[in-house]
């Protein structure tokens, strides 16, 4: 570890705060937007906030397991995006819209 490394001048708490802010922005988007494709993007943003926190902890502690978890999260995110977008295209074919507010058939 070099003396001028970022790990000396920067506490991990700043990465924790940054990830919290990113996660909350993602959740804000999920709550506020009604366009299904933007909703999926906000979920990606939240997943990335978690990834950043995993990578920060892994680097500060010198443990590679955290970075491998990030790979698995990426795999899940890719699978989720593929299936989610396929569902979205199908919904668009039926309703001619990506508004999630229209999908209220199960309300009873």
């Amino acid at each position: 570890m070099k003396p001028d490394s970022i790990f000396n001048s920067l506490d991990i708490s700043h990465y924790i705060y940054l990830s919290c802010v990113l996660f909350c922005i993602g959740m804000f988007g999920v709550l506020m937007r009604r366009n299904a494709i933007v909703l999926l993007m906000c979920i990606e943003l939240m997943l990335n906030a978690v990834n950043l926190l995993f990578a920060a902890f892994s680097s500060y502690m010198g443990d590679a397991s955290g970075q491998l978890f990030v790979f698995f999260i990426m795999v899940v995110a890719a699978a989720e995006a593929a299936v989610g977008l396929a569902i979205l295209v199908m919904v668009y074919r039926n309703t001619k819209s990506t508004d999630v507010g229209l999908l209220n058939n199960l309300k009873g």
Binding site: M1, S13, I16, S58, S59, Y60, M61, G62, A64
Partner: peptide
């Protein structure tokens, strides 16, 4: 952050 042991290893990534 108090519970994180700061032990960066060169080349972990």
């Amino acid at each position: 952050s108090e519970y994180v042991s700061r032990n960066p290893v060169e080349g972990v990534g």
